[in-house]
Amino acid sequence: MSGENYTIVMEFILLGFSVIPKLQGFIFAVFLIMYMNILVGNGLIIAVTKTDAALQTPMYFFLGNFSFLEICYTSVIFPKLLTNFWSHNKNISFLACAIQLGFFLVLGSTECLLVAVMSYDHYVAICKPLNYPLIMNHKFCVQLVVVSWISGIPVQTTLTYLVSSLPFCGSNKLNHVLCDIPPLLKLACGDTSTTELSVYIVAVLFGMISFLLILWSYIKIITVILKLPSATSRYKAFSTCFSHLILVSLFYGSIAIMYLRPKASHSEEIDKVLSLFYTILTPMFNPMIYSLRNKDVITALRKLLLK
C-alpha cells in the first residue's frame, strides 16, 4: 500500500435503515414492539419453568435456558439498533463493535448447540422412553447446558480477534444493523482469505454439525412416530415436529445463506433482511412455537398470571 494515503478506521458508522429516513419513526415502533415481545414472552417462559412444579423436567429446563439465551442474544443488538433510529450520531467505536461481534458470535453458537440438545432430548423421550429418566438425569442436563454455553467462547473469541485484527482503512460506513462478519470483511483492506476460511470452518463446526444432529434426531423420531397405532397421536407428534423444523429451517437457512455463500454474491440489503431472521424473528417466535402451543405451559402461565 506504499505510495497511497489511507485513513485508519477508529470507529464505524452503522447505517442500519437510514436509507429510508421518512420511515424511521415507524420502523422504530415496529422494532420496539418486537423487542418487548421477546423480553416479555421469553421472560414468562423462564418464570414458569422455574416456579411451576409440573414443569421441572429436562425439556422445560432446556426451554428455560433457551429463552434466557434469546433475551441475551437480542439484547446484544437491540439497544444500539433502537438508539440509532433517533440519534444523528450512528457511530460505534472499534472496541464496541468488536465486543458486540464477540458476544453475537458466542451466543449464536450457543443457540446452535442448545437447539441440538433440545432435539436430542426429544429423541430420547420418544425413542427411548423407558430409559429417559436414567439418560436425561439432572446432572447430565446441566452438563449439556454448560457445554453449550461455554464451548463456543474460545473458538468465537479467536474468530473475533482475527476479524478485528484485519486492517480497516478508507470507508467506515458499515451498511448493516449490527457489527457482523460479512459487512466487516467488505470494509477490510488487504488479504482476507485466511479469515474467510476460518469463518467457513467455524460455521461448519457449530452450524453444520448441530444441524446434522438435529436432522438425525428427527429422522429417528419420525420413524418411531410412523409406527404409532393411533392416528391422533401421530398427528399431534407430527404437528410438534413440524413447528420445530420450521424454526430450525428459519434459523439455519438464513445463517447458511448469510455465511456460506460466495463473497461475490453478497448483497448488503439482502444481508440486512437475512440477519433479521435469526436475530429477531426466531427469538420472537420462540415462545409461540416451543411453548404457547403446549398445554402444560399455558396452564402454568395462567397460574402465574392469577398470582
Results as ranks from 00 to 15, higher is better:
S249W: 09
R234L: 08
L213P: 00
S210I: 02
F242E: 07
I214G: 00
G207H: 06
R261V: 02
H266V: 15
I270T: 12
L215V: 12
Y259P: 01
V202C: 06
D271A: 12
S217W: 08
L215R: 08
A231S: 13
C241Q: 01
F277A: 14
K272M: 08
L274Y: 09
L247Y: 14
V248D: 01
I270L: 11
P229D: 13
H266Q: 07
V273T: 15
Y252S: 09
L228I: 07
M258W: 01
T232G: 09
L205N: 02
T223C: 13
M208K: 04
F251L: 09
S249T: 12
I246W: 13
F206I: 13
S267H: 14
C241H: 06
S267N: 15
S217Q: 05
S217A: 15
S217T: 09
H244D: 06
I257L: 15
E269C: 08
I201Q: 01
A256C: 04
V202I: 15
W216L: 11
V224Q: 09
S243Q: 08
A237H: 00
V204Q: 07
A264C: 01
P262C: 10
V224W: 00
A203M: 07
A203S: 13
S275H: 15
S210C: 12
H266R: 15
K220T: 03
I246A: 05
I225T: 06
M258Q: 07
D271V: 09
P262H: 11
I201S: 03
S210T: 03
P229Q: 14
K272R: 15
S210W: 04
Y252W: 12
F277Q: 10
L274N: 11
Y259G: 06
L228P: 05
I255P: 00
S243N: 11
I255D: 01
T232P: 01
S210L: 11
L260P: 05
V204T: 11
R261G: 08
S267D: 13
Y259I: 09
K272V: 15
A203R: 06
L213N: 09
L228F: 15
K263S: 10
